Simulated scan of single mutants.
Amino acid sequence: MSIANQVKEALYSVIDPELGINIVDLGLIYDIEVNKTNDVFVTMTLTTPGCPLHDSIVGGVESAIYYINEVGKVDVQLVWQPAWTPEKMSDQAKAMLMG
């Protein structure tokens, strides 16, 4: 499995504490890039710019990625454009929130 795929799989373990759903299914991960030295660059957003759990979620992302043996450096960039909307969620996440 490629490092990028391993990273995506690892990010399923990072849960948004307010919603109780992983950040991949929430649609918060916009891009994962891995360079030749296995440095990982993640572009992501949060559900709201003023999210009080910003540090907790970003720290969870970094920890999950560093758990992969082959990874070099990890750089997580938070972006606010495009803005997150509920339409970015997977069908599974939507079903979980709708009950």
Rank of each mutant, 00 (worst) to 15 (best):
T48F: 10
V71P: 02
L97M: 03
E87R: 06
P82C: 08
K73A: 14
I29G: 03
M89S: 07
L28H: 06
E33P: 04
D91H: 14
E18Q: 07
K94G: 00
V71T: 13
S56N: 11
L78M: 04
M98P: 04
K88T: 12
L26N: 05
L19H: 10
N35H: 13
N5Y: 05
N22Y: 07
L11W: 06
G59R: 11
L46V: 05
P82V: 09
V42T: 08
M44S: 03
E62S: 07
C51I: 02
L46A: 02
V61G: 00
H54I: 15
Q6K: 11
A10P: 01
I68V: 13
Y67S: 12
A93E: 05
C51Q: 14
M44Y: 05
V71W: 10
Q6T: 02
D91C: 05
D39N: 08
Y67K: 14
E9H: 09
A93P: 01
L28R: 10
D25G: 04
N38I: 06
T37D: 14
S90A: 08
Y30S: 07
I68M: 01
V34K: 12
C51S: 06
V34I: 08
P82G: 12
V34M: 03
N38G: 08
Q92T: 15
L78C: 03
V71L: 04
L53G: 01
V7T: 03
W80N: 03
Q81R: 15
V76F: 06
D31Q: 14
K73G: 14
K36D: 14
G72L: 06
S2M: 09
E62P: 00
V40M: 00
Y66M: 08
Y12L: 01
I57D: 00
T43A: 05
T85K: 10
V76H: 13
G50M: 15
Y30M: 06
D55R: 09
M44G: 01
T85I: 04
N22S: 11
D25L: 06
D31A: 12
L78K: 13
A83R: 14
K8M: 14
I3H: 08
A10T: 05
L26V: 02
T43E: 11
T37Q: 14
I23P: 01
Q6G: 07
T85D: 06
T45D: 02
G27S: 10
T85V: 11
V24T: 07
T48D: 10
I57K: 01
A4W: 09
V71D: 03
Q6M: 03
M98L: 12
L46Y: 06
L19D: 03
V61E: 00
I65V: 10
G50S: 09
S90F: 04
I29K: 07
I32R: 04
W84K: 05
D25I: 10
D39P: 00
V61S: 03
I3M: 11
E33R: 15
I65E: 07
N69P: 09
L53Q: 12
N22C: 04
Q6Y: 07
S56Q: 15
P86R: 02
I29F: 04
